[in-house]
Computed example of a mutant assay.
Amino acid sequence: MNSQWNALLKNLGEWQGSFTRLSPQGELLGDTKSVVSLEGLNNNQTIRQTIGLDENEKVLEYSSLGKGVLFFENGAFSQGSIQLAPFSEFGAEFGFIHGSRRLRVVQLFDKNLKLDSFTLIREHLAQTQSSQNPVLTVDALLGEWVGEAVTIYPDLQKPDSYSTQMHLQLNNGKLTQSLSFANRTITSTATLKDSILLFEQNQVQVLLLPDGASVTSPFQAQLRQPLFLEVGWLINPYLRQRMIRSYNDKGEWVSLTLVTERKG
């Protein structure tokens, strides 16, 4: 069994929770109770996945992984579009796992490549206590975060690992973010509007969500320009994970990065 399949197996079990659909501005569009079961068959060589949403149930069985999905060793993953193309829907799912809890977020763009909707999925293993973090706030993110990043690639070339440092400070209603990684430092400024951070210089928004989640998206995906989608999870006040799915200027999915960072 390869390492990708072994990482998938970290997600085995019955996950109970909810699928919450949100507009790009974070408005509630719908909320559905969910039970998602991943069961290993044939000595874990086949996965049976049962997805129950209210009264509807769908069963999938598979023995290999699709081209659009990658897993990290701890079971975290992302699956989605491998190509940004005109007149086609575009999007991705990001999944984090920590103990008996999972947090997943789906970002979707319409056929004009405009940000369309999000789905926030909060889950816990059956027979475990259901617990959730508060809605994420800017105050919870302020300060110095030091982390380690791992980047993996669709062609399964050797992963890259490097240190990261992020500093967030708030001055007169403006958030300044300084991010250092791989001998580069990027500084950007955002305006806080309700539960949204607007980075106007690169036309990107960060939506702050329940359970310590955040989702970073362009307002409009642009052809012939590189782009990234990101989801974060504040697992506890001093531990955060972020996952970044990157596309090049040809619209090709080129890498997936998981950052695990701790507050200094």
Rank of each mutant, 00 (worst) to 15 (best):
G40V: 08
L70E: 08
L65Y: 07
T32G: 00
V36T: 06
F71S: 00
N44W: 06
T32Q: 03
G30L: 04
N44E: 15
T32R: 01
K67T: 15
G30E: 05
D31V: 12
V59P: 03
L41E: 15
V59Y: 07
I47D: 00
G52V: 13
N44Q: 14
G17C: 05
G68R: 03
N56V: 12
E61T: 14
N44A: 13
S23N: 03
L65C: 06
V36I: 12
V35I: 10
L22N: 01
Q45I: 03
E57S: 13
A76W: 04
E61Y: 10
G26P: 01
N74D: 15
Q25L: 11
E73A: 14
E39D: 10
V69W: 04
D31E: 15
Q16P: 01
S63V: 01
K33A: 11
Q79C: 02
S18R: 15
G68V: 11
N42R: 04
G17E: 04
S23G: 02
G68H: 10
F72T: 06
G26N: 03
G66D: 15
E27I: 04
K67F: 13
L29Q: 07
L65P: 01
L60E: 12
A76Q: 01
S63T: 07
T50V: 14
V35C: 05
I51M: 09
L38D: 11
